[in-house]
C-alpha cells in the first residue's frame, strides 16, 4: 500500500524575501510548505517524488528555474511546476510550459491567483498519483499470475471464448475455466469489462 503523505508546496526562490513571504502566505492558508534557495538545494533534498507541487522562480543565479525543470524531467519527477516570472519573461514562460509546467504567474501577484493555481496543481498531482498507484497495483496483480494464467488472460482480453482458448492452448475447456476464475480472482476484477480496462491501462503506458 502507498503511504499517505500530506501534499506539500515546495518553493524554490533565490530571493530571501520573496521566498519567506510565500512561506508565510502558504502558512496562512494552512498549506504545508518547504522553501529552498536554489535548484541544487532542492535536488539534494530529494523531495521530487513527494506529493505536492513546486513553485519555482524562473530566474535564479546559477541553476535557473528552467534548468531545474529539465533536471526534474530527467529524474521522471511528476511534481507539477508553477513558475513565477517577472516582467517580460513571456518567452521563458512559453519554454517552461512546453517542458511540462502546469502554469506560470507574474509577480507581483494576487494571493488568490497563486493559491488557485497551487490548488489546481495539487489536484493534478493527486490525480496523477492515484493513477500511478492504480497502475502499480494492476502491475502487482499481473505479476502474481502464473505463466499459464498469463496466457489465458491474454487470450481472454483478446476476446476469445473459452472453447477457442482451450483449442489454442491445447487444454481442456474445464482447465481453462479454472484458470480464468483464478485470473479474475487475482486481478480482483468485477467483470470481464473491468479486467480488460485494467490490462489496457497498463499496456497503454508501457507501449
Amino acid at each position: 500500500m502507498i503511504k499517505e503523505i500530506k501534499p506539500t508546496v515546495f518553493v524554490v526562490d533565490d530571493d530571501a524575501a520573496v521566498r519567506d513571504s510565500l512561506r508565510m502566505l502558504l502558512k496562512s492558508v494552512g498549506l504545508p510548505v518547504e522553501v529552498f534557495e536554489s535548484g541544487q538545494e532542492f535536488l539534494d533534498a530529494d523531495r521530487d517524488d513527494r506529493p505536492g507541487c513546486l513553485v519555482l522562480d524562473i530566474r535564479m543565479p546559477g541553476m535557473s528555474g528552467l534548468e531545474l525543470q529539465v533536471k526534474l524531467n530527467e529524474r521522471h519527477s511528476i511534481l507539477p511546476v508553477i513558475f513565477i516570472t517577472g516582467h517580460g519573461d513571456v518567452p521563458m514562460a512559453v519554454e517552461a510550459m512546453q517542458a511540462g509546467a502546469v502554469d506560470f504567474i507574474q509577480k507581483p501577484f494576487r494571493d488568490q491567483d497563486l493559491l488557485d493555481r497551487i490548488n489546481q496543481a495539487l489536484e493534478k498531482d493527486a490525480g496523477s498519483r492515484r493513477m500511478l498507484a492504480e497502475r502499480n497495483m494492476i502491475r502487482k496483480r499481473l505479476e502474481s499470475l502464473t505463466p499459464r494464467e498469463k496466457e489465458v488472460l491474454d487470450l481472454v482480453v483478446a476476446g476469445k471464448a473459452n472453447k477457442v482458448i482451450a483449442g489454442d492452448l491445447n487444454l481442456s475447456q474445464r482447465t481453462v475455466e479454472i484458470h480464468r476464475a483464478r485470473v479474475m480472482e487475482k486481478m480482483e476484477a468485477h467483470s470481464l469489462a473491468h479486467l480488460v480496462r485494467m490490462v489496457l491501462e497498463v499496456e497503454r503506458v508501457e507501449e
Binding site: D15, A17, S21, L25, P108
Partner: peptide, 10 residues
C-alpha cells in the same frame, strides 16, 4: 514589491 504584496496578503 512582490514580497511586500505577498506579506500583506498573508
Amino acid at each position: 514589491l512582490a514580497a511586500i504584496a505577498t506579506y500583506a496578503q498573508a
